[in-house]
Design a protein around this nucleic acid. Sequence first.
DNA 1: CAGCTCCGTTGATCTGAATCAATCCCGGCA
DNA 2: TGCCGGGATTGATTCAGATCAACGGAGCTG
Lengths: 233, 233
Amino acid sequence: MRATTGVRLTGPLLAAASPETRAALLAHASVLTVPRGTTILAQDTPADRLLVLLQGSVGLSNAEDGGTATMVEIIAAGDALSIAPVLLQVPHAVSAVALAPCRLLALSAEEFRAAAALDAGLMRAAMEQMARQWRLMMDQVVDLKTRDATQRAARFLLHRLPAQRGAVDIPEPRGAIAARLGMTPESLSRALHGLEAAGLLRLQGRRVDVTDRAALLRVSLPRAGASQGARRV
Amino acid sequence: MRATTGVRLTGPLLAAASPETRAALLAHASVLTVPRGTTILAQDTPADRLLVLLQGSVGLSNAEDGGTATMVEIIAAGDALSIAPVLLQVPHAVSAVALAPCRLLALSAEEFRAAAALDAGLMRAAMEQMARQWRLMMDQVVDLKTRDATQRAARFLLHRLPAQRGAVDIPEPRGAIAARLGMTPESLSRALHGLEAAGLLRLQGRRVDVTDRAALLRVSLPRAGASQGARRV
DNA sequence: CAGCTCCGTTGATCTGAATCAATCCCGGCA
DNA sequence: TGCCGGGATTGATTCAGATCAACGGAGCTG
């Protein structure tokens, strides 16, 4: 296996490591292929390996001791699962399940920690990932506080949309997306069909064809007069 | 200044550094005292110093390019503001304003970065803080998705409550708390007075006297049948 | 290939919380 | 001590979205 190939296919985290570090880590790495619905990580379980999502889609959900589980984030290909638990040697704070067929790269947690301690670039990349995940969570908080269901749905699509206008494939079940967006599947369906009726997009099963990207962006902006959380001291 | 005094007053972050590192950092540190309403950090501004909140209360808010600002978190004494921006040398992702009169410890960002690079304990504590802040944000997402206004208000009080039953002082303006909880001040008022009417607590201006902590905890649990985000794949 | 099950959609209704609109009350100040 | 101003409270109304319910279609299985 050529190292450079590994780099490109492996996401920003390992890309930041020196070629030697990366080669060492990849030497013992394995690739998992799992079908939709597989539980990849269980909450409150020790973090014995670092997983990088190569392909597919993974949902992160948190169950409070009570039992109610909540979909907290949907991870895109290229991202690493649970860097923090691996580095800090604490149990996973969330469970991860495959929302679509997935390919994952699995690295030994111990080796990764050792590598991060020695390779400053890798350590920095790990911290950047943690900061990024904080930001994603913060963005979601902002979304939930300032945007209504339709706006959140519009924004979700925009985030998924490749560079230019066009169609996106949404492999995840609607219920998972609705949960991530903090609404019921019924509401998501209505929001999506409302956008379609407005002529901004076209729904074709799990493919969404965005006709008017600019209008979709406009829809996704929070209403100016929103008060929730918009108070100055 | 005795170093040990500094430790205790300085929060878990600096407590994790070696005595020498800590002494070196504290040597150039300064203490700020600011009145309520002061903007302590501005979003999109370079992170040139690390601030540790010694006393008071600080609100973190995020303004999207559009302009709508949202209260994203309220920081408790002992916590550090914006560790990630300091370590990664990126601009602040949020603004910070004093929600009550505050005392803050200010350290040079550059010195802190240097210290963290040399002192493994400090580096680990910094990562722990980042992980903790991610978790706080995730908890908030869960709250917003699974709890109604009254439950979120109850939970907020419980988090503030000292070890044993008793009264808490809530120095922040109601509007700021409401924003943090993702509701309007009107709704917060109604939630709080509802809990008072139920006999769980007693409102006395900015002091809240919790009569029945167990019942408050019970109230704060998400309803079992909550569907939002509670779907299995 | 037929049946079944699960997922997504659609409709009707209900409810929690936002909005709009007055007060009320506390703290600061003259 | 009385006035003033802004935050907090309370009430009336409205509305977005949850809930309840039923239906349609796609994919899997026997």
